[in-house]
């Protein structure tokens, strides 16, 4: 623990740098990333290696199969991340891992790897909430300071902004996420998950709008009715491109409206779009429209970092560690249902 002793004596922003090895393992992706930050320099992503479990065509993630995939490739992924970062293990100061939320069996693989490294090399172990990590990496990369955030992915659909020590939720899905809507419709239509890219391509081919359930309750959204109706339309031989177009227009308009309501309520002048679905151009375009009306600035996570990756965990690990967060191995159990508004955020202030 030599490093830890040296570090805790130093004021923040000291010349001492931190290099973190972060492990993401919440769902289909096993990712390892090395990020380094100097005393007064900007953080640098030295490597970000991902191995993605691919379910069978027409099937979703099987948690057990995904965890087996992760266990098989974990060691080589860590090695590759170190190699790409040109960083020997001796230069790593801390280890962070996604403690939740996510699929239990998958989370446990990442946690075991992180604990092992931490124990063997005597390094501080930093637990990270993956939803918060999505947001914090995006905030770092885009340079926003106090945004309203829309986090949209297979695991999340939530509108949040920071206040009094926590990311507060201003709207969320009451059932499935926007990513699940797209993927589950895709699977019903015979495609493998994730369906996002193909979905957008099909949607582009149509202008024929079919009326679908538009369900907004207060600031919250619900996509289950939209999914059921879309599947039925597919069974009734409606054109795939028309259904994709209509899901996109309806589902994203619901998100845009929720964002607009939250924006009017919290009165922030920055909107940050984060998560795998952030890569969708139509969603970006709609939110730009919302921002234009409310004179807010629109920011989106760069596409390469929109999906699940180790860089999210590594960067938030550094932030958390600098704010004094770490856990002993006995307290490092995974938290599959860990809400982002339960995280005490010590690295932000307002």
């Amino acid at each position: 623990m030599k490093f830890l002793e040296t570090f805790t004596g130093e004021p923040e922003g000291s010349k001492l740098g931190i290099t973190c090895l972060g492990i993401e393992s919440t769902a289909h992706t096993f990712g390892v990333s090395i990020i380094s930050i100097g005393g007064n320099t900007k953080p640098e992503i030295l490597s970000d290696v991902r191995r993605v479990y691919q379910p069978e065509k027409g099937k979703g993630i099987h948690p057990r199969e995904a965890s087996r995939h992760h266990a098989k490739i974990a060691a080589s992924t860590v090695t590759e991340a170190l190699k790409k970062a040109k960083t020997p293990m001796e230069d790593i100061h801390i280890v962070s891992f996604s403690q939740g939320p996510g699929l239990g069996p998958c989370l446990r693989v990442g946690a075991v790897v992180a604990r092992s490294i931490s124990a063997y090399y005597h390094l501080p172990l930093i637990p990270v909430n993956h939803a918060v990590a999505h947001i914090e990496l995006a905030a770092m990369l885009t340079g926003v300071s106090d945004p309203l955030v829309l986090l949209v992915s297979g695991g999340h659909t939530v509108i949040t902004s920071f206040s009094s020590g926590r990311w507060r939720v201003f709207g969320e899905t009451l059932d499935i996420t926007i990513g699940q809507l797209i993927d589950q419709f895709g699977r019903a239509a015979g495609f493998s998950s994730p369906f996002g890219i193909a979905f957008e391509e099909y949607a582009k081919k149509s202008q024929n709008f079919i009326d679908l359930p538009y369900t907004i309750k207060g600031n919250d959204v619900s996509f289950s009715g939209l999914l059921t109706t879309s599947k039925r339309l597919f069974r009734d031989d409606k054109k795939l491109e028309d259904i994709c177009f209509s899901i996109q227009e309806t589902g994203f308009a619901m998100l845009a409206e929720s964002v607009e309501r939250a924006l009017a309520f919290v009165e922030k002048d920055e909107l940050l779009l984060v998560g795998g679905v952030a890569a969708n151009n139509r969603l970006q375009n709609m939110l730009q429209g919302v921002c234009k009306i409310h004179k807010s600035n629109f920011f989106s996570i760069p596409k390469v970092f929109s999906g699940d990756c180790g860089a999210q965990i590594s960067w938030n690990g550094i932030q958390a560690f600098k704010a004094g967060v770490s856990v002993g191995i006995s307290d490092s159990s995974v938290k599959p249902s860990w809400r982002l508004d339960e995280v005490d955020v010590k690295w932000r202030s307002n």
Partner: peptide, 13 residues
């Protein structure tokens, strides 16, 4: 009117 929304949906809402 919200121009970022599909026009049929926008009018209906």
């Amino acid at each position: 009117l919200k121009t970022f929304r599909q026009s049929v949906l926008d009018l209906k809402l």
